[in-house]
Simulated scan of single mutants.
Amino acid sequence: MFKFPRPTALGQLRFGGRLGWARGAAGALVGIALAATLGLSLPHAWHWPWIVAPVGASAVLVFAVPASPLAQPWSVLGGNMLSALTGLAVGQLVTTPMLAAGLAVALAIAVMTSARCLHPPGGACAVVGVLAATAPDGGWLALLLPLLLNVIALIAAGWLYNNLTGHAWPHVPAQAPPMPPGTWAGMYETADLDAVLEEWDEVLDVNRQDLDSLFRAVERRVLRRWADDRK
């Protein structure tokens, strides 16, 4: 029988301890409420959506993992808007719905990567763009304007809430302090880290500088423990 793996200590660290989820949940409440309020300001006669579903996924990233490279302001803005535009363009050019949806997401990934704004909810925006392309005249505007207002509100709420709760946003990578001389700690160079990342050939959802600072912090903790053991 299949069993789901148990959460690891690293998973607990990433979510900020036992109450990290509460901070993220409260932030999402604020961000989505603000996005919805701004969306509701659109004239009701236009029958446009007051909130676009992918914004909910963006809120999870912005408030639950604000240090992620995928959750930074440009990723939220560019990832959602460029993907929606990509989906609209594909939907206009490709008449087979299944092919259009797949092609839109594939191209959205390429566009986001090229623009350095990779953002998972962008894939959903690309699909929504394909659907909006088949709507009556003005359907594309019914997607772009509410989405833009939602995203702007979410970014504003993310900037205010994250910074007020002690999480600099946009994220500033931690600077590792110099290691004490004459010990094994700090012997690796950043070139070694780059080489290992190159060998792994995987996209990691963490800033390279944050990885380096994490390793240095582990080394310093080991040094302190060894010093305590010698007393």
Rank of each mutant, 00 (worst) to 15 (best):
P177V: 08
M81H: 07
G139V: 11
L149Q: 09
L93F: 08
T95S: 14
G91K: 06
L93Y: 01
L144H: 04
L107P: 09
A133Y: 10
H119T: 11
A135D: 10
L160R: 01
M98C: 04
T96V: 14
A176N: 04
L147M: 14
L88D: 04
I152H: 02
L144V: 13
H171Y: 00
V111Q: 05
A132I: 10
A168M: 06
L144R: 06
N150M: 09
W169H: 08
P178L: 04
M179S: 02
I109F: 10
L99T: 14
G122D: 07
A132W: 07
G102H: 07
N163D: 01
N163L: 03
V105Q: 05
P173Y: 14
N150Y: 06
P97C: 09
L148I: 03
G123K: 13
T96N: 12
A176V: 03
N163A: 04
A106Q: 07
V151C: 05
P181K: 12
A133W: 12
L131M: 14
A84E: 04
L131H: 10
A108H: 05
V172G: 01
P180D: 02
G123L: 14
I152S: 08
Y161T: 04
W169K: 04
L144A: 07
L141V: 09
A84V: 10
W140L: 04
T134S: 14
Q92P: 02
L164T: 07
A157K: 02
N162H: 03
A157T: 06
L145D: 07
V94D: 01
A132Q: 07
P146I: 01
A156I: 11
P97I: 07
M81L: 15
A124P: 06
A100R: 00
A108G: 06
